[in-house]
Design a protein around this nucleic acid. Sequence first.
DNA 1: CTTGACCTTCCCATGATGGGAAGGTGTAGC
DNA 2: GCTACACCTTCCCATCATGGGAAGGTCAAG
Lengths: 128, 128
Amino acid sequence: MNIGQAAEASGVSAKMIRYYEEIALIKPPARSQSGYRVYGAEDVHTLHFVRRARSLGFSIEETGALLALWRDRSRASADVKAMALKHVAELEEKAAALKAMAKTLRHLASHCHGDARPDCPILDEIGA
Amino acid sequence: MNIGQAAEASGVSAKMIRYYEEIALIKPPARSQSGYRVYGAEDVHTLHFVRRARSLGFSIEETGALLALWRDRSRASADVKAMALKHVAELEEKAAALKAMAKTLRHLASHCHGDARPDCPILDEIGA
DNA sequence: CTTGACCTTCCCATGATGGGAAGGTGTAGC
DNA sequence: GCTACACCTTCCCATCATGGGAAGGTCAAG
């Protein structure tokens, strides 16, 4: 399977597959005689794992750690759970920060007439 | 006032002040004979506005638009309110995405023993 | 006059992704 | 067998916002 098919099958773009290889997140695949990257089902599975981890908000570095745990048959599930819960906490922190911003801004907006007049508590407050 | 004092007074780092000038978000300040940037109270006020806008999650481009509205005495408050509410919607969307990730991951973690045994539904699910 | 704190510009790095150019390869249709 | 086209390769550049640091100039205090 060439990189295009692997991308299609895993949901990871060809560009990203090459990048993940470059930064050593994934192993360099075999090459055909002409230099094309050749992937197998196992590789696609790994790529799919990476895609899922990324979609759960794990950084590439964290994804690498998860991959290592995934491949290590003797890992302790406690290690995985700890990583997951730490990440949950970070996600919730970021979400809370965004919601705080939204709340502040919504509050400011609620005091703004929103008509043709120029006076605007939103700008007043940001500038204060 | 030199850039260091302006940074101190506005809460924007000297590095960022130079960058904002480079990308034309703010006007180039006067220069002393020796080439030092010289800022006044007005400039600090502007920098402070920028800092506040950024802390509310506006991009630099959006901050530029807000600055323009801020300086335009004849703006319609409706324009400001529209920008603010659009941004609120984006913030809430991002927050919701993060919360969805957290929820998924928390759910997975709740099914993980979290002990010395290797079997772990978190990894199973990410790899599935 | 030296020292140290400040300033200047310039280049590089981050994290994750995409765009695109220049050139080689593989295959399908004629 | 040739042509066209889809695909592959590597390499460089851009994004967004920020920080780090080097090399060199300036200013004020001691």
